[in-house]
Design a protein around this nucleic acid. Sequence first.
DNA 1: TCTCCAATCTGAACGCTGTTCAGATTAGAA
DNA 2: TTCTAATCTGAACAGCGTTCAGATTGGAGA
Lengths: 195, 195
Amino acid sequence: MTNQTQSRETYHHGSLPEVLIDEGAKLLAEKGIDRFSMREVARRAGVAVAAPSHHFGNAKGLLTAIATQGFRKLETQMAAAAAALPDPQEKVVAMCQTYLGMGVNDPGYAAIMFRLERLDESDQRFREQSFRAFDLFADALKQAASKHVDDAQISYAAKTLWAAMHGLVDLEMIKDQEAEALIRFAVRTVLAGIR
Amino acid sequence: MTNQTQSRETYHHGSLPEVLIDEGAKLLAEKGIDRFSMREVARRAGVAVAAPSHHFGNAKGLLTAIATQGFRKLETQMAAAAAALPDPQEKVVAMCQTYLGMGVNDPGYAAIMFRLERLDESDQRFREQSFRAFDLFADALKQAASKHVDDAQISYAAKTLWAAMHGLVDLEMIKDQEAEALIRFAVRTVLAGIR
DNA sequence: TCTCCAATCTGAACGCTGTTCAGATTAGAA
DNA sequence: TTCTAATCTGAACAGCGTTCAGATTGGAGA
């Protein structure tokens, strides 16, 4: 089906890093971060236990690569969701919904993206990609605010709202039926705070 | 020093559960959640590797007990910080500062309290204690709001602010020098949102 | 005071984990 | 075509969580 079975006919895999990231994300989606295992990922990819180390160094390395891919998805999805709407404030709401939706739509990536203690925060690609996602969000907030608001206030608002979205997911404080109202409360309130 | 050395003169430990929680929290403070180990805790408590299981069932059980103790500390500290201040809004600010301060003052407890995937969320004591801490916070927010604000709005505000505080810590978005201003921005904004 | 049950703790065992390393394999540059 | 460097293997090592039969002992009931 995938290039897993195909590639096992040859000694060299061909696209092992990509497959490891994919299988790793799937495993995370199935079992969660605390039952994630490098050996299981290698098994699913059909390679020896030591193979992943050659590409990612160690477990932290692979998890960081998965998280980076997750932030790439988040950025893309947030941009797409915002592009479909004309109203600046609605763009911010849509981005928040995208953020919260990752836990449902991409559970594997969501399971690791914000587990900093399991990631290599000094990884340059991870840093750039995660900052890019946040910056996209902060820019949207800036567009939704009045022109004369200074950058420090924009920064506070972006951090507060971004952190609130993360907290709502991480602490499992959000129920499906009130998600919409809660998001709108948070966005409206934070935006009002800098007007 | 502690009752560890003393108790090893007898077969029965006497207060093993308490010691395991203490040593577990210390280990968490030293090495973090991903290098936490049941065997290391047993070693530090001076008991056999299997001893902790008899009291807490498994690792999740011990971590949940530590987290419960952490929420007890958080509740106590928040209450104390708020009691020292007359102004309702300042009480909320003080509680937020207490929340953020746990990572510095009680790093061991803070390292596990919000790692739900490592905890037994069905544990009754944990549920009650964590809810008690949040309820104390929500009550303070209610006192700082106008009388006529309905409970749904209070609930949204409490969740948003609590989640924001958690997110700021968890995502390491807060720098020491701007912590005060950021907290005050969040509290003022959220309170304004329900006035 | 004595007996004995139930709680407590031990130590070995099992299967799993991440990581390392010498060596086999092979793609691709020279 | 040759050979270097990248890729992958398979075994090994130390550490992990959990289980379980058995040793120990505090404390309730006789």
